[in-house]
Nucleic acid binder design. Structure first.
Length: 293
DNA sequence: AGTACTACCTGGAGGC
DNA sequence: TGCCTCCAGGTAGTAC
């Protein structure tokens, strides 16, 4: 379930490893992941150079040189994996490994049924988007200045806030419960189910409380908690429960740091009470009724 | 207008 | 062992 820290992990990988790559060939597998664009649109990337990689909430924005400077927008959905390997690397069990002795590509193998986009580079490397559950999406912005309804709906990126400005932002919410508000990408972009639960636990606030009913102190606590859990997730290269991997196929290490998500029925690590798992805002939610008030 | 709920999708886990 | 059912969740669309 890639949320802001997982997407940021992939972005940093692209920044370090894939900038400057020139596209040789674009292949599309399942075209259902394409939104408002066609395989023919994506093939216009051929000859373009990857020269920037930004992130907005859970969306990756891959900027390419060459007029009119197209942007490829990628959302990893639930199970999406974006990986890159150089010509002198191979993929073993999903992980990118250096191969001894440079081996020129013998031509790409057929796409596995979960690979929906493969971008081969002139260097012999390639970038692959794989997504078994197909909740992921790829959007195509033909020009630098163009945008997309999905991006226009997003609020400010969660990591763009200071604790104080985030607390002020949260104050604008109405009577919705905290869990619902944190998941609303138009309020702030990037928080998903895992980090919402972690933030609420850290802030010692019940997911059922109303945002508009928080005291100023509680809102400040929540804002600091949101930023802290996201920061911790980024530092651990993301949370891998099942599918998430970074650009090189490595799992993130934040799962072992989670204090509530996936721990329903187990003792609370803060007070020892039993963690409750229930459905809030239509999502599995784990929290501690004895210390989250 | 603002809010709430459901469909989409597949692999893995658990039950029998 | 094998088959069936259920569950996970981000987003858009629909219903209210």
């Amino acid at each position: 379930m890639p949320e802001l820290p997982e997407v940021e992990t992939v972005r940093r990988g692209l920044q370090e490893r894939a900038l400057g790559q020139v596209v040789a060939q674009v292949e599309v597998g399942h075209r259902g992941i394409l939104e408002d664009c066609s395989p023919e649109d994506l093939r216009r990337l051929e000859g373009c150079t990857l020269d920037g990689c930004d992130r907005l909430g859970k969306y990756l924005l891959l900027r390419w040189s060459g007029a009119p400077r197209p942007t490829l927008v990628v959302h990893l959905g639930m199970s999406g994996q974006l990986t890159f390997r150089r010509a002198d690397e191979e993929v073993v069990s999903g992980m990118v490994r250096l191969v001894s002795g440079y081996r020129k590509s013998l031509g790409p193998p057929p796409l596995d049924r979960h690979v929906h986009l493969r971008i081969a580079f002139r260097s012999g490397g390639e970038m692959v988007f794989r997504d078994p559950r197909r909740f992921g999406r790829v959007l195509w912005l033909a020009q630098e200045a163009s945008t997309h309804p999905r991006l226009e709906r997003l609020g400010p990126d969660a990591m763009s806030f200071s604790p104080r400005t985030l607390a002020r932002r949260l104050q604008r919410d109405s009577t919705r419960d905290l869990k619902t508000a944190l998941l609303d990408q138009s309020l702030l972009a990037g928080v998903g189910n895992i980090y919402a639960d972690e933030a609420l636990h850290r802030a010692e606030l019940s997911p059922h409380r109303e945002m508009s009913g928080l005291t100023e102190g509680e809102r400040g606590r929540l804002a600091r908690a949101v930023l802290a859990v996201l920061k911790q997730g980024i530092e651990a290269s993301g949370t891998t429960f099942r599918d998430f991997v970074d650009l090189e196929g490595h799992r993130g290490s934040n799962a072992e740091k989670l204090r509530v998500y996936g721990r329903g029925g187990l003792p609370c690590l803060r007070c020892g009470g039993s963690l409750l798992k229930e459905t809030v805002a239509g999502r599995g939610t784990v929290w501690c009724p004895s210390c989250q008030g």
